[in-house]
Amino acid sequence: MLIDVHELNSGYGKVPILHNVSFNVSEGEMVTIIGPNGAGKSTLLKTISGLVRSKSGSVAFGGQEIAGITPDQAVRKGLAFVPEGGRPFPNMTVMDNLKMGAYSNQEVLKTGILEEMFTLFPVLERRKNQYARTLSGGERQMLAIARGLVSRPRLIMMDEPSLGLAPKLVDEIYEKIRTLKVSGLTVLLVEQNTSYALEVADRGYVLENGRITMEGPANELATSDHIRRAYLGF
């Protein structure tokens, strides 16, 4: 198991958000965590990456306990996080944004990672000297994913890559995510867009009110009555 989260509790100040959340992701697997707005999905990813401090519970990454580490230490251990909305640096060029992804280990730039990213996202190569603020929503999301991949992470966590994108662009982003999966990357995908997430993932967990309420293979979740009624709308 690459990452094993056990009975994780977390929240902001005195407000608890996550209650005894447990899940795991194996090497090469794509796991999705779905759930409604406000369920604590983003908080979960932020807690794992160290942006939010956990209150109790353990996070084992590659067999090593990482609960409570700072975000920059998490990156050095091989954990990449693509935040909600992508959040590229608007006043930096696309190229500089990508290079920021190699901040913790500049050696990685010599391994041809930028060329790989340009092959995966050709639009970024065309835009490489443009400021990120001039990109469209879909391009920003691609830039954010590429920026996360530049560090050659062992696990990449994506927070709602489809957020705020037009349906056509969501298709495009998910096509890229599928490509990443085929390449063997380990991905933890958090989504509100349940149908897309369950279609691409191997396994899924349902997070509701800060608790894991269901889990199973993605295709089984997609056909379960609860999920169909509550999330897929049929």
């Binding site: 935040p83 590229p88 640096f89 920021m100 913790s104």
Partner: peptide, 23 residues
Amino acid sequence: KLGYSLLALGEDEDAVEVLGVNS
């Protein structure tokens, strides 16, 4: 390297931390 980390954290501190910058 310091300059790039400063510029980036001036724009988005959370985003730069998850890239490995100790802001």
